[in-house]
């Protein structure tokens, strides 16, 4: 069959969701952010939530997330997205509010805000991109940087005596009674992307059902910061990040109920 015979509207099986606009993303080639943005946009479209959704962008590489998905957005100060989302969601309980935060934003400067928003069980979705590095400022150590991992502020590798230990903040979040669904996913293979999408969908549904805070960590790559090709980054992540940050659901309940595993 000739290619031109295949490329027909009736044979279309995969295309860009209309909620993602035509602006070319500013991310480096192969960056996980683009995939997660796409999943969010697809789900907001598929679940018909455009008019209800307010996104809260962080400070970090995804500071410009608001440029790409066609919904109303607010840009938060570094680490404060969960407080901003709390304000929006409390005063507009009919809206679907999510934050999109990186590891520096969520697990370092914004630790108090994320802990307390989750502990109150705010009806929000938190997307947590963990690539173990500060991407935007040039590849410095993040709270989630692995032991021995080289960054621009740990040029000889993270020394836990000097810098402390890589923080498994999602495990802490799962302990909080305010959270309903806490999971750790990745987007490094097609199968992982599909699984991650199912998780985010479930998380969104939980928020709509007012079950409490839903928290989806996405173990991600930063090939520029890690100084590897995108494909090598995915492999390095599989070999190094995922053993320390194992994938899977950590908690699936409704807020106030203790069924964390």
């Amino acid at each position: 069959m000739e290619i031109q015979e295949i490329i027909k509207p009736e044979n279309l099986v995969y295309q860009k969701t209309p909620l993602l606009n035509d602006d070319v993303m500013h991310y480096c080639p192969g960056c996980s952010h683009g995939v997660v943005h796409k999943l969010l946009a697809e789900l907001i479209e598929e679940m018909d939530l455009q008019e209800k959704t307010i996104g809260v962008a962080p400070v970090g590489c995804s500071v410009f997330a608001y440029n790409y998905i066609d919904i109303d957005w607010q840009e938060a100060a570094h680490g404060r997205a969960p407080a901003v989302a709390t304000g929006i969601a409390r005063i507009n309980p009919d809206n679907f509010v999510f934050t999109y935060q990186g590891d520096g934003d969520l697990a370092s400067i914004g630790t108090a805000e994320i802990m307390h928003a989750c502990n109150r069980g705010e009806n929000i979705l938190v997307i947590f991109i963990n690539n173990g590095i500060y991407g935007m400022t040039g590849g410095q150590m993040a709270p989630t940087t692995l032991e021995g991992m080289v960054t621009s502020t740990t040029p000889n590798g993270r020394n836990v005596d000097l810098n402390g230990y890589p923080m498994k903040i999602t495990n802490l979040i799962a302990q909080l009674p305010g959270t309903s669904y806490v999971t750790r996913q990745s987007v490094h293979t097609a199968a992982a992307v599909r699984k991650c999408k199912r998780s985010i969908k479930k998380a969104i549904q939980n928020v709509l059902d007012k079950k409490g805070t839903s928290f989806v960590e996405v173990v991600s790559t930063c090939n520029s910061g890690w100084k590897m090709t995108p494909v090598d980054s995915n492999k390095w992540m599989e070999e190094n990040m995922i053993p320390y940050y194992p994938l899977g659901d950590m908690k699936d309940t409704i807020k106030g109920e203790h069924s964390d595993r």
Binding site: M1, E5, I6, I7, K8, N11, L12, V13, Y14, Q15, K16, T17, L20, V24, M25, Y27, P29, G30, C31, S32, H33, G34, V35, K38, V187, T189, A190, V193, R194
Partner: peptide, 17 residues
């Protein structure tokens, strides 16, 4: 569609017959 699913820049469209 694996290529489309993993593409971070959503620049892939896939057809199947």
């Amino acid at each position: 569609i694996n290529c489309g699913v993993v593409c971070p820049d959503t620049c892939i469209t896939v057809y199947r017959a």
